[in-house]
Design a protein around this nucleic acid. Sequence first.
DNA 1: ATGAAAGCGCTAACAT
DNA 2: ATGTTAGCGCTTTCAT
Lengths: 359, 359
Amino acid sequence: MPTIQDVALHAKVSVSTVSNVLNGRTDRMRAETLARVEAAIAELQFRPSKLAQQLKTGQTPLLGLLVPSMTNPMYGYIAREIESYAQEHFGYRLLIGSTYRDRDKESAFFEDLSAQGVRRVIVISSLADERHFESAVERGMTVVSYDRGATPGKLSRVGHVMPDNFEAARIATRHLISHGHERLAFATVAGMTMSRSAKIDGFHAAAEEAGLKGKVLDGGPLDEYGDAVIAEVGRATAHQIAALGQRPTGIVALNDLMAMGLMAGLRETGLEVPRDVSVVGIDGLYLSGLSNPGLTTVPLPVKTMARAMVERAMRADAPPESAESDQVFAPEPLVQRESVAAPPDRQRAARVPEEGTAS
Amino acid sequence: MPTIQDVALHAKVSVSTVSNVLNGRTDRMRAETLARVEAAIAELQFRPSKLAQQLKTGQTPLLGLLVPSMTNPMYGYIAREIESYAQEHFGYRLLIGSTYRDRDKESAFFEDLSAQGVRRVIVISSLADERHFESAVERGMTVVSYDRGATPGKLSRVGHVMPDNFEAARIATRHLISHGHERLAFATVAGMTMSRSAKIDGFHAAAEEAGLKGKVLDGGPLDEYGDAVIAEVGRATAHQIAALGQRPTGIVALNDLMAMGLMAGLRETGLEVPRDVSVVGIDGLYLSGLSNPGLTTVPLPVKTMARAMVERAMRADAPPESAESDQVFAPEPLVQRESVAAPPDRQRAARVPEEGTAS
DNA sequence: ATGAAAGCGCTAACAT
DNA sequence: ATGTTAGCGCTTTCAT
């Protein structure tokens, strides 16, 4: 690899002149000099070492991204949007890390990033507190956290970007109600996070509006399962539902993946969606359009949020006020597919023929 | 951020002593000195700058990973396995890039990696040739390529790791044949890659074994579609199939995602899986276990391959012989689910009851 | 308009 | 056993 020295020699100028052209200070030199330098650069195929630049400037064009798991399609989706926005608009690449919701792994990642010279990171974490990376912020990192608000009462220099989870769940629930459902359930996993409780609140709010009382179903912990994680919890929940005396007829799932697991599980127990039970998801994964029956879901504005996170991470210099830096994004309009119908006791009117329903 | 200087001062030793403890050369000093240094490090919370280390040693603990798209669950899966193996066994982090199968994006990524000091990269590319990164190899990068063999005849210093695509497709096809299918089709996308042609060959081989003649269905190009890409092509293929006079009864899909799209599309046309047509996928995504009907598929040994790729990328020093560096991995045993049944004309025996089939 | 030189935070000879 | 020092490849004053 040629260095700036080589170029200088080759162009018969000093390294500072080369550096100047590298940094666009071309006004400080004769056109002829510039031409020589550029020729040398081209000829040697010289690419300045970011490493050396970083050491000098303290800036590295790398964005850290912390996700619970890349295998989760939702995180893959978010990661993709973050990546392309950061790349296209700022020339930043992504340094990614999966944490499997483990605090030590998260901390270790922050350590590494910091040692690596990375100053901007986006975190998707479901861990309750963010103390373990508050320290990173204090050391000068800009961090933006997804799907959680600032800890109430605590000042924080961490940026927060999230969907309006309350509203998303409320929309999903209302959809069920508008189809006549009265026995409502919300399928979630064990462990409360801000986003989960917001969804649950939204679910209850919608139920109450209609004078109904919703039930929250906890499918169990996430970590016991390998990969399919959330989907497996959904599957477990389905079996739990099947065993219930008074079965709910309308279910809002924590997210699309869980909904898909739920539908698979329901099928295993002989229950049919949407004939016996209706299901609504939240997220808007394209995969949900592939399921059978197609999953009705409330899409989250992933692109917009990804953009907001990158912007926030980049424009670090903005007023680092306290908690007011939270940004909440409204969900997109519900996408209606085939996983919702009237509850069983209201279906006499038009017991849909084979094809109209599911398979 | 404290530097090695600060630590030296704090411990009242020279920087080289600190450097020595950092690099495990602790035998060269008195235990007492070591203790002082360690204390200083702890107290100052000193983390050596990888940046500076890299500049000095030319080694950066970063592994480049080039994927067509993170949103594709298969790549997400592979990326995850690569990440954890590289992290756990070598302390490497992942610098990831999506290329959307674009040559310029791939080249740009290599440029960036190289400037970033990254010397090891794993590439998942479906582009026909690998000339654009052969040059990276010549500049000293170690690159391992997934799902393609060395270009025949051409020497290459690029490592190659891939599944036995021929065998995978053959297994899938035989499975269909063993269920009595005689009108066989292979659903693929436009554009031939090594892995796609290997699968097609395997498909034909299995058909011929049985004295049958398989048909290859091309669902169209990948790039027209946004995200759901392959699944959408599958969907298109389904509509194409429905319009056919002599419909195939057994279809092998290029991969699971395409199979899922195919099943969704089939459903749209009123065709039922597996009653009217049977479908087999290749990959073994956990999502395929969630589909309805559950997708029968030939799983690829992702974990093993990920491991092999990382090892190859790390142990760069191994004999950089010519093409013989290819590593091919056998698929895992076919996972039987519900997407395959006897062809329609053989089903009179036991026309399966509602539940046994699909919904 | 151009060049010399002092680092950025480390590592690794090479002293002592 | 410990310290001195010369870089790694760049950026950036400050001279000339």
